[in-house]
Amino acid sequence: IRKYRLHSKIVLSATLVLIFVSTIAFCLLEWHQAYAGLATGEKLLASLFSAVTARTAGFFTVQIPSMSEAGSILTMILMLIGAGPGSTAGGIKITTIAVIFLSTIGYIKGSDDINIFGRRIDQANVRHAFNMAFLYILIATIGGFIIIIIQNANLHDVMFEVFSAIGTTGLSRGLTNSLLPPSKIVIILLMYSGRVGSMSIAMAFIEKKHADSLRNPQEKVIIG
Rank of each mutant, 00 (worst) to 15 (best):
residue 81 I to H: 03
residue 33 Q to H: 13
residue 1 I to F: 14
residue 221 V to T: 12
residue 52 V to W: 11
residue 183 S to A: 09
residue 97 I to R: 00
residue 134 F to E: 07
residue 203 M to L: 15
residue 18 L to F: 10
residue 212 D to K: 13
residue 216 N to R: 11
residue 147 I to W: 03
residue 75 T to E: 11
residue 124 A to V: 10
residue 49 F to W: 11
residue 170 G to H: 01
residue 199 M to I: 10
residue 156 H to R: 14
residue 110 G to R: 01
residue 154 N to D: 15
residue 208 K to D: 07
residue 148 I to A: 14
residue 97 I to Q: 02
residue 24 I to L: 12
residue 32 H to G: 11
residue 76 M to W: 01
residue 66 S to G: 13
residue 129 A to E: 05
residue 222 I to K: 02
residue 138 L to V: 09
residue 20 F to W: 10
residue 134 F to W: 11
residue 86 G to Y: 10
residue 79 M to S: 02
residue 141 T to S: 14
residue 52 V to P: 02
residue 100 I to Q: 01
residue 40 T to P: 00
residue 77 I to S: 04
residue 169 T to Y: 06
residue 148 I to Y: 14
residue 120 R to N: 14
residue 197 G to F: 00
residue 224 G to M: 05
residue 7 H to S: 12
residue 153 A to H: 08
residue 129 A to G: 05
residue 13 S to K: 04
residue 104 T to P: 03
residue 129 A to N: 04
residue 17 V to S: 07
residue 136 Y to V: 11
residue 149 I to P: 03
residue 222 I to Q: 02
residue 182 P to G: 07
residue 87 S to I: 08
residue 17 V to Q: 00
residue 193 S to M: 13
residue 18 L to S: 11
residue 133 A to M: 15
residue 57 A to E: 00
residue 197 G to I: 00
residue 193 S to I: 12
residue 32 H to P: 02
residue 18 L to Q: 07
residue 131 N to I: 13
residue 46 A to H: 07
residue 38 L to I: 02
residue 55 R to G: 03
residue 53 T to P: 10
residue 185 I to P: 01
residue 217 P to K: 08
residue 50 S to F: 03
residue 9 K to F: 01
residue 11 V to L: 00
residue 132 M to K: 13
residue 20 F to L: 15
residue 183 S to Y: 01
residue 208 K to E: 10
residue 8 S to I: 12
residue 95 T to Y: 04
residue 48 L to D: 05
residue 44 L to N: 08
residue 99 V to P: 01
residue 93 K to Q: 11
residue 156 H to G: 04
residue 200 S to V: 15
residue 188 I to D: 12
residue 91 G to P: 01
residue 150 I to N: 13
residue 142 I to C: 10
residue 221 V to W: 04
residue 215 R to C: 07
residue 96 T to K: 00
residue 141 T to A: 14
residue 42 E to G: 05
residue 52 V to T: 14
residue 138 L to Y: 04
residue 207 E to S: 13
residue 200 S to R: 11
residue 72 S to V: 10
residue 64 I to G: 12
residue 94 I to P: 01
residue 98 A to C: 12
residue 99 V to T: 11
residue 153 A to Q: 09
residue 10 I to V: 13
residue 191 M to R: 02
residue 56 T to V: 09
residue 115 N to W: 08
residue 29 L to H: 06
residue 204 A to S: 15
residue 42 E to S: 07
residue 9 K to Y: 02
residue 19 I to W: 10
residue 15 T to R: 01
residue 193 S to F: 09
residue 74 L to P: 02
residue 67 M to Q: 05
residue 61 T to V: 15
residue 189 L to V: 08
residue 201 I to K: 06
residue 183 S to D: 03
residue 64 I to L: 14
residue 174 G to E: 11
residue 158 V to M: 02
residue 5 R to T: 11
residue 100 I to G: 01
residue 44 L to Q: 09
residue 179 L to W: 07
residue 150 I to D: 14
residue 197 G to S: 03
residue 19 I to D: 03
residue 32 H to R: 15
residue 62 V to R: 12
residue 56 T to W: 06
residue 54 A to F: 08
residue 149 I to T: 10
residue 121 I to Y: 00
residue 162 V to N: 00
residue 31 W to T: 02
residue 119 R to P: 01
residue 216 N to T: 12
residue 207 E to N: 13
residue 89 A to M: 05
residue 188 I to T: 15
residue 170 G to S: 02
residue 138 L to T: 13
residue 95 T to F: 03
residue 144 G to D: 04
residue 112 D to R: 15
residue 162 V to K: 00
residue 15 T to Y: 06
residue 156 H to F: 14
residue 95 T to L: 05
residue 100 I to P: 00
residue 159 M to Q: 04
residue 27 C to L: 14
